[in-house]
Each structure stands twice: as C-alpha cells, then as structure tokens.
Design a protein around this nucleic acid. Structure first.
Lengths: 304, 304
DNA sequence: CATAACTCTGTACATCGTACGCGGTTAATC
DNA sequence: GATTAACCGCGTACGATGTACAGAGTTATG
C-alpha cells in the first residue's frame, strides 16, 4: 500500500470528465449513475475508511451496481481519483471580495469550521517581530485563512495527503484554488516566481503539519487506544532499553512533553505554533523586497 | 494503496528485534538469514520500486528463500517496516562535536551528498532580516544541517514519506536522532515544550518540501516523460478549457514559471527558498525569548 | 421494425499478506 | 551415542485487489 497518484490515468479522459464533456449522445439505456455521484460516493468511502478501504467493488456496492459497471463512466481508478481530487477542492466557499469569511457550508469533520474561521480574529495580532509593516495585515490574514482552509481540508479528507499532485490533472476547482492562492500574494512587489515560491512554502508546511495531525487521529482510531493509554502500555518496554545518559535531551523533553500533553505530541498545538513562524519568515522576506503592497497598488492604479 | 503504518505490529516484538534480543544458542538448524539482512533487502526493494513494489515474496526472492520463511525472523510486514525505519535512521554519521560535517558515507541517490554539505557553507549567511543576533549562527547552522539531512534521507528513501510515524516504535537510531534534533535547540532559553515545537515545525516543513521533490522524481520515472515533455503534451488540453479572465493570476504566474523552470515547479529551488524562511521565522521567535544561547550557557556553567 | 449504440453483469487472472501443517536439521538431554 | 525438543524453511490455501473480455439487455435512430 502506497501513495496513489493523480494523473496516472489518461489526462485527456480526465480533463473531459472534469470540465464537463457536454456530450449527451443518447442511444442506449438511460445511465443509472453520474460521474459526480460516483466521485462523491468514492470520497465518502475514502473519508471513512481511507484510501485502502476504497475499492471499485466497494464504490459499486454503495451505489447498487457491480464493479464493472463503473467502468462505463470512468476509465479506471486513477481517473476516479482525479475526479475526487478536484471535487473536494470545490468545497470551499467562492472567494468573494475583501472581507470574505471562510465559514461553514459543509463541515463534515467537526471542529474544522472553528479552525478555519479563527484566521479572521487571530489575523496579524501578536506576531513575534512586532514591528508594524505597512499593508502587512492584509496579505498575512489572507495567507493565514488559506492555510487554515487547506489544513481543514486535509483533516476532512485525510486521503488527500496520500494523493501525489506533482502533475495534477487540473480541474476547474483545482485551478480556481491555485489562482486564489497566488492572488493572495499578488501586488506585494514579488516577481511571479517569488509568488509561486511563497505559496509553495506555505503549502508544504501545511501539508506536513496536517499529516502529523491526521496520523495522530488515525493512530487512535486504528489501535482503539488514546495516546495516553498507548503510552502507558508502551513506556515499560521503552524503559527497559532507554539509556538516559545516551539520550539526555530526549529524556528531558520527553518527560515534560508527556506530562503536559498526556501524549507524545499535540499536532494541533504544533500547527498553531508553526503557522505564525512560517508567516513571520515570509514577512521577513517581504521586508527585503522593494515595493510594499500599497506602493504596488498605487503604481498599478495610477493611469501612468 | 495507502500509507503504511509504523507500530502496527506488536510493539513488544518490534522492540525486541530493534534493541537486539541477545538470545544466541538455539536448537534447530542454523538460520540462513538475519533480521538485519532482511531489513536491508526490503529497503533496497522499497528504494527501487516503492512501497507498492515491496512484498514479502519479493524480499524472499531477493534473499533466495520463500515468502513464508521470512516469518520465522519477523512476525509480519508491519514489524519489518519498523525495522526498515530504524535502519535508515542509522545511516547518518554519528553526531560528533562542534564542526561535524554531514558528508558521504553511503550516498545512494546522487546529488544528495552535495545538498547535505551545503549547510556548512551557506550557514547563517545572507539571511533576510540581516540583523546580527548573538549566537544565532550556531543553532541556525545546526538546524539547517539537520534539515538537509532529513531532506536527503527522504530523497534516498522516498517510501519514508509514506510511513506514518505518529506512534513509532522507537528503535535506537530513531531515538538517537530525536535526541540529536532536540539537542540542536537546547540551551537557547526555550522551554522543553518550545524545543519540541521548533523541531516539529522544521520537521513538518522538510517533510512537505521533500514530498514535493520526490513526487516530481517519481512522476518522471512513472510516465517516462520529463516535466517539459509532459507539459508539451498537456498544454493543448488545458488551453481548450482555460479561461484567462477567470484565472488571471494563475495565468500570469503559470506562464512565467513555465518559461523559467521548463516545468510547472522546481522542488529543489522551492526548498532552497523555503528553508531560510522557516529558519527566519524561528529566529524571530527566538528574539522574543529572554535568554540568548550564551546567557543560558553561562548560567548553566557557573557553579551557582 | 431493424439496428447501432449504449449500459450493465459474470467470469477470470495475477498479486497481495499470511494462517496452517509438514518434513528436515540441529543441539541439548539422557 | 541415541533420543528428542526446538527450530527452519516450504507448499498450499484463502479472500482481497484492479480490470480485460464476452455477452445480455435496453433504447433512440434509420
């Protein structure tokens, strides 16, 4: 069992499916299903049971048909994954103007809505470097909201973490999302390449942090033990071999962290700590660039 | 196909295997194999063909035995993965004193050695914020070296990215590594929890960045096309549906990035850009903390 | 009405991890 | 030195997986 790939199937077929081939030739019997239905069913299964639990037979069962029947709608499992991918990227509310809030409208995973909205309140406050930077709040709030949306999406659909998106089949929703993320750092005086680099940096971090959180969730679900219970069972094994003299710092940190978290780690806290740091790093980078957001906007708006 | 888990098997058995059950004199015929041999064979296969290509039969073939024979050494595939994990974390040179260089000694993946060593030269130079911070070079150089080592390890053993390590079976090498990473941020005036948070932040980012790089490698290997070839084949499909008015920023960035990279992205460049940003973010955080590295050291060394 | 186009099903194959039982090999015991 | 308990390695078997292929049933078009 390994990573599943996007774009493994025939890109042409996937693109047709994604962008809606308006072909409705009508000779045979009425189709009992739609591709969207199939994709949603597959997503539900993958959400609940992971990508290992996702099989053509399983999806077919859920829809009341046989496995082979799905192949009339979708060339294969790889293309189905392309569809699933673009579908979940369509779950975010449309990016409205200025103060758009990324709230509810479908929240399948519980606390995720809270996580997403927190961006607005937290915003640019309490940042380490402290110095006020002109226009900083804007891009920072935008990036933070996007980061939290991505984090929440990963938690809603953990299988996303295992879908390789190196050469994704760019469906409409994936495309819109990419545009939106780049737009968040547009007008800051960055070159196009730098815009891409900043967005990629944040995306990479969020992916890593979300992975840790999802793994913790799944570890509990898989073993039926909380972190605390697990640690209680595991500690004696470790003590038999652990040499404090050999691993002094780990011993110290492990003890404190164990007492504080009642677990080895706390992924949510890690993310709340890490996200501002990454944004600080981006901020430091922006300070080295010539133009501020306002300057760039002024320059663009003035009828030269 | 999905993520494979560490710690799925019986932790007790895994721990025994990892920390060396000292049982020697046995009754039956001489074992033809050792667990270390099996682990190395499995690693080689996973390196070459990914976790999907790794099967008990495949490992057995490589070693000239049958699949079932492996089960006399290892309880199952899950425990084998625990072994593989700890084994690859033993590939780094021992952390020597001060100026230890993380060089060669096994470099299976080509340019990775260069990537690892670059830390020393790059070090703390050319950082964005510019301001000199007392003792900053030290922790920063250490963290950068560790980050590059981790990045290189992921590239050497891409399957590592798919091994969930939420509740890892802590073998000696994993343990030593964790200790080493924490030691890199020890004495900076951070609390134990903060030390853990900083190390986790960097680890999460490196994981995300490495994943992107590995995916790009694998996309090329899988499809037999370079990014450029792929893009050349894919672009016409995209142009049929792409609406510049709907995705203006993506259009602009995509065009420039395509021209510059000859590809959609350049993961190596992303990492070289992102790593200093993350370190800057950590640096900004350290500046908010009371004690500097020297102050902490002095306080510890003075025979109060 | 005949037919071409289409949907859906059943069967089949190779590959996976591993449970189970058997037979051969060895070292400890008498 | 013979016996035997402990152990190694093998062969077979089972229920999964994605999907190729052939055929049966359904419908709009000529």
């Amino acid at each position: 069992m390994t990573t599943e790939y996007s774009g493994t199937g025939d890109p042409k077929r996937s693109m047709e499916l994604l962008w809606g081939g308006p072909e409705r030739p009508r000779r045979g019997p009425k189709p009992r299903l739609t591709v969207a239905q199939i994709a949603r069913a597959a997503i539900e299964i993958a959400d609940a049971e992971g990508l290992t639990g996702l099989s053509m037979r399983r999806v077919a069962d859920q829809l009341g048909v046989t496995a082979m029947s799905l192949y009339t709608y979708v060339p294969g499992k790889a293309e189905l994954l392309d569809l699933m991918l673009d579908t979940v990227y369509g779950e975010e509310p449309e990016p409205t103007t200025a103060g758009a809030r990324a709230t509810d409208r479908r929240t399948t995973a519980g606390e995720t809505a809270a996580e997403e909205t927190r961006a607005t309140e937290a915003g640019a406050g309490g940042r380490a470097s402290g110095g006020k930077v002109t226009g900083a709040e804007d891009w920072r709030t935008r990036l933070e909201r996007l980061a939290r949306q991505n984090y929440a999406r990963y938690r809603r659909h953990p299988w996303l973490l295992q879908v390789a998106t190196s050469r994704p089949v760019l469906g409409p929703n994936l495309m819109a999302r990419w545009n939106q993320e780049l737009a968040a750092v547009d007008g800051l005086g960055l070159t196009e390449i730098e815009m891409d680099l900043v967005v990629t940096l944040l995306g990479d971090y969020v992916h890593g942090a979300a992975r840790a959180a999802v793994e913790a969730d799944q570890a509990e679900q898989r073993t039926g033990m909380t972190d605390e219970q697990w640690w209680y069972a595991y500690a004696p094994l470790l003590e038999q071999v652990f040499d404090v003299a050999r691993f002094p710092v780990a011993a110290r940190v492990g003890e404190v962290a164990g007492a504080e978290y009642r677990a080895a780690t706390d992924p949510a806290r890690s993310f709340e700590f890490g996200l501002p740091r990454v944004l600080d790093g981006i901020e430091a980078f922006l300070r080295t660039r010539p133009a501020t957001e306002e300057a760039a906007r002024d320059a663009a708006e003035s009828p030269s």
